[in-house]
């Protein structure tokens, strides 16, 4: 595995505002990882935002609120994001969530897009949290 070029961390309540906080953090990170070209940066950023949005829309707590904790690492040969849904019920991923709906649909594309864009995407249950792991291997390995 190559050296770490940039890393980022965002934590907060799973509300729509956290989507903007994640975008600000990613924008800051790309400044330190300019060798990652737009052909890899744009798909990864979109996939991360789709999964964060999925959490805000669908993660439900047994009581109180769901906390979202996102860690991102950028290396020349691997873009990695780990998203923890803290205090959420186990994630229910509907069958067919990987299929792109038709052009008339106004919703339901988020996870389908993430699956299409990433090299791997998994969701596992660990210690009472849902943990999404997203990876993208850059097509044109940088520097």
């Amino acid at each position: 595995m190559r050296d770490l070029l940039a890393e980022g961390h965002v934590r907060g309540s799973a509300t729509p505002q956290i989507v903007d906080a994640v975008q600000d953090e990613l924008a800051r990170m790309w400044i330190d990882a300019m060798v990652i070209g737009p052909g890899d940066r744009l798909p990864f950023e979109l996939a991360v935002i789709e999964v964060v949005t999925n959490t805000v829309k669908h993660a439900r707590p047994p009581g109180g609120e769901v906390q979202l904790d996102l860690e991102v690492e950028v290396r020349a040969d691997l873009l990695l994001a780990r998203l923890f849904e803290l205090g959420a019920w186990p994630a229910i991923i509907p069958e067919g969530s990987g299929e792109m709906p038709g052009p008339e649909a106004e919703a339901g594309r988020g996870l389908a897009l993430a699956r299409q864009l990433l090299t791997t995407i998994t969701c596992e249950r660990h210690d009472g949290a849902n943990v999404w792991t997203l990876t993208l291997r850059p097509e044109h390995e940088a520097g």
Binding site: Q23, E45, L46, I49, T53, E104, A105, E106, R109, G110
Partner: peptide, 11 residues
Amino acid sequence: FMDSSGLGALV
């Protein structure tokens, strides 16, 4: 930037 939420709004 536009994601699937933005796209849904466009539709």
